[in-house]
């Protein structure tokens, strides 16, 4: 029903130049999942509450359910599919994932804050993770994994 009114959007997706046809207000989440087949980003609420669809837009976490795809033209979008597996060891050990539905979003925010140690001067990990609702872990497994990774990083610096 949207073929009357589609537009081609070009952006960089996980480091690769990408073109996709979208309707003007298609959500980035739908574009990623259904048009581009990247199903790692999950839809948990469709209202920007749960964070399961967290991706990076020009390096900053956003909820892909609240981004119109046309607004990412010319931008860098990174999804869970871009996260190197070896960076997840601490979270695997700490029990950061149970059912896994919130997990891709959790991992995106966690990796972002691990890449930005300066944030720890002003923010607690719990505050920064508050945009990712998890119903299984009670958050300890997640927080422990992040803090463990941070300790490992700071000790290897």
């Amino acid at each position: 029903m949207s073929d009357v009114n589609t537009m081609q959007i070009e952006f960089t997706l996980n480091g690769t130049p990408t073109k996709v046809d979208v309707a003007p207000m298609d959500r980035l989440l739908d574009t990623l999942r259904y048009a581009l087949g990247l199903t790692g980003s999950k839809e948990g609420c469709g209202e920007g509450e749960c964070g399961a669809c967290t991706v990076y837009l020009d390096g900053v976490p956003v909820n892909a359910c609240l981004v119109p795809t046309f607004q990412v033209r010319g931008c860098h979008v990174e999804t869970i599919e871009s996260i190197p597996h070896e960076s997840l060891d601490a979270m695997l050990t700490s029990g950061a994932t149970q059912c896994g539905a919130c997990t891709p979003g959790v991992v995106m925010t966690a990796c972002w804050l691990n890449r930005h140690p300066e944030l720890s001067k002003t923010h607690s990990v719990r505050e920064l993770m508050a945009g990712n609702l998890c119903r299984c872990t009670g958050y300890d497994g997640i927080i422990d994994g992040i803090e463990c990774e941070q300790r490992t990083k700071s000790s290897t610096l």
Binding site: T39, S41, T79, E81, H85, L92
Partner: peptide
Amino acid sequence: RRLEGISKLTGQMQY
């Protein structure tokens, strides 16, 4: 460690 953990952490698990 959780056997399907990596597949969940990387978003590869197919729901």
